[in-house]
Amino acid sequence: METLNDAKIVAALNENTESGFRLLMAKYKEAVYWHIRRLVVSHDDAQDAAQETFIRVFRSFRQFKGECAFGTWIYRIATNEALRVLERRRDGLVSLDDSEAETNRMMADDYVDYSDWESVKLQQAILSLPTKQQLAFNLRYYDELDYEAIAAITGSTAAAVKANYHIAKEKIIKYMNSICG
């Protein structure tokens, strides 16, 4: 996340809403969508949550006081939207068996390429992790954010994020070894 570009985006949003909006989308629309998609899996849910994220960002960017990087703030909103989707789903589940069935159902989305067996298994391994470990792993591995930024997004500490990332990585390796073995 380049701070300079973010400063330009915020300035453009303040000066001219449309050009600011275009810059915001150019930099973040794909990153935000994929971040949410990795958590919620379903394309439709990811689309709704990404859309809601940008509407919130656009309507409230004037409240952004710069306590953290602009990108961190956007990721935080996106993460909250994704967690809200997961929360709604969990409300409808009654047991752990249901939870496993739900993961399989999520992976049965139309927009998943099952021919790429290894990457499907990797995503299943990630989805089997507790949410904090998923977030730490995804934001570090896919988005290449530093531990401080991830901590700001998840409301945690850099040390805790680092620990979660390493635990997640070990679990994924163990899972992938067991199925590829």
């Binding site: 994929w34 899996v41 394309h43 990404a50 509407i55 309507r59 790429d116 499907v120």
Partner: peptide, 22 residues
């Protein structure tokens, strides 16, 4: 690499929808 895909032209459509909404 991820197994997830999106429909053709999805990101442009999403941007247009959000702009209309805001």
């Amino acid at each position: 690499r991820m197994p997830y895909k999106t429909p053709e032209g999805f990101f442009d459509e999403m941007e247009a929808r959000i702009w209309k909404e805001v």
